[in-house]
């Protein structure tokens, strides 16, 4: 389970002013559940996910992975999390197996476990054809497969995936979405952020809409539709976000 308890993050900016990137965000993701985080660019998604992954320290509030409060033992918390975002890239001069070995060791896995898991994931993700190449020579899709393998390598109970299908072709995106569904079936708690509404509709059990640092609405697709009087996620999204963009006060 991943839980966020009134998380806030304030960044200092020029001339002593502060930017409130995330304000009092609370939600919980149960095992075997996919929670979608939707919001326009700059809404605070990445900051929120970085806090959950303990890469950023919250200004206030707490995160939990299972029963562990992440700031009490961030190293153990990171062991239980697989984190993927546009900013978690791979070492260009290493080959995929070398990368997996490196991260496997950092996650405290034994050499044998790393080897077996690498074999397994290479098979499942269809990575065999480029296994001997350095990452700098791989295509976007191939690189993303290696990144997914890196996230799943130590088989963490919690997955935090920030736009995992960004810029991928349909085939690769499908492979990766299948993997996420597979992880769900094995009881993992998954947070998933995307800009593709169809993906969210297809995949997510519940969806949180974040805008200007706060979670504005949360629920299943049907609940959100009922709440906003729209019949698809795109309209739900637009109705929640647009009034404000046009200057109306937030509801």
């Amino acid at each position: 389970m991943i839980r966020s308890d009134r998380l806030s993050k304030v960044f200092p900016s020029a001339r002593g002013k502060v930017v409130e990137a995330v304000r009092e965000a609370s939600f919980a993701v149960q095992p075997g559940e996919i929670y979608g985080l939707l919001g326009p660019n700059g809404a605070g998604k990445t900051t929120l996910l970085r806090m959950l992954a303990t890469i950023l320290a919250p200004t206030s509030g707490h995160c939990y992975v299972g029963d562990l409060r992440t700031d009490r033992d961030p190293e153990e918390a990171r062991r239980r999390i697989g984190f993927l975002s546009g900013n978690t890239r791979l070492y260009g001069r290493l080959t995929p197996p070398e990368i997996l070995r490196y991260f496997g060791r950092l996650y405290g896995m034994s050499s044998r476990a790393i080897r077996e898991r690498t074999e397994e994931l290479s098979e499942l993700l269809d990575m065999r054809e480029f296994v001997g190449q350095r990452c700098e020579t791989l295509s976007t899709g191939q690189t993303q497969k290696v990144s997914i393998a890196r996230v799943l390598l130590h088989d963490p109970p919690a997955l935090i995936l920030d736009e995992p299908t960004l810029g991928l072709d349909i085939m690769t995106a499908r492979t990766i979405l299948r993997f996420i569904q597979g992880a769900k079936a094995r009881g993992r708690s998954i947070i998933f952020s995307t800009h593709y509404m169809t993906e969210a509709e297809l995949l997510c059990d519940r969806i949180g809409l974040i805008h200007r640092g706060t979670i504005r609405a949360e629920g299943t697709l049907r609940e959100l539709c009922a709440l906003s009087g729209a019949d698809n996620l795109v309209d739900v999204f637009l109705r929640l976000v647009e009034p404000e963009e046009n200057g109306a006060p937030p509801r």
């Binding site: 970085r50 992954a53 890469i55 190293e75 153990e76 990171r78 062991r79 999390i81 984190f83 975002s85 546009g86 900013n87 978690t88 890239r89 791979l90 070492y91 260009g92 991260f103 950092l106 996650y107 405290g108 890196r150």
Partner: peptide, 14 residues
């Protein structure tokens, strides 16, 4: 610059 730092920070390495 290469964007790999965050990958490293997401691991349990202190």
């Amino acid at each position: 610059e290469r964007g790999t730092f965050e990958t490293l920070l997401a691991t349990p390495a202190a």
